[in-house]
Design a protein around this nucleic acid. Sequence first.
DNA 1: TCACATTGCCTAGCAATGCTAGGTATGGAA
DNA 2: TTCCATACCTAGCATTGCTAGGCAATGTGA
Lengths: 101, 101
Amino acid sequence: MIVLAAVEAAPAHGYAIIDEIRRRSGGAFDLPEGTVYPVLHRLEASQLLSSHWEKSPIGRRRRVYALTKRGKASMVERRTSWVQFSSAVNGLLAEPRPCRT
Amino acid sequence: MIVLAAVEAAPAHGYAIIDEIRRRSGGAFDLPEGTVYPVLHRLEASQLLSSHWEKSPIGRRRRVYALTKRGKASMVERRTSWVQFSSAVNGLLAEPRPCRT
DNA sequence: TCACATTGCCTAGCAATGCTAGGTATGGAA
DNA sequence: TTCCATACCTAGCATTGCTAGGCAATGTGA
């Protein structure tokens, strides 16, 4: 979901995605390449992302990923799931009262 | 963390923990035994939980778990981590603006 | 009485996944 | 020419959630 979210605003390539995630999370998520690249491949295999090769302004090859229609739909679901999930966790964390109303 | 949180208020045995988690999360987390029992064993091995055998009022044997001192300390850390984590995720999800302030 | 549900515990083993630790290649700077 | 930064990749380990079983004791209904 995090990777999808990073690509959501604008298509990007792996390295830029890692930077974007780090930036947007205020440094909280500093994902290594060994995490992100396999995720990108899995998301493409699931047809949530599509990719094509580009040349950077200097001439380096880049694989640029974009959300597919299914990817956008998936993000809608995932946002909902995340809200439910985090609410549930907050509920669990916010109830440490053995006695005394 | 969820399991620790369920034991935090009062010591409990596996089955009760599962119920408590389901109840507190409003049904969002309905963890199967195959998830919870191994977790309890791992948490005890990490000395975050301690356990002892009890007899239920009817006479069935139960393993009752309680938070250790380290377990309580761990919960303090985990709450903090969770707040940071969920804030970071919210930050990531809340920024799908390519253009236009 | 005999079957079944319920409570209560356990584990083997699969599948998924995060990450470490390596590798390749190119362009620019020292 | 040597090194750093950019940019991609993967093998394989360790962890973990869960399915799918099993065991034992106690009700409960037919």
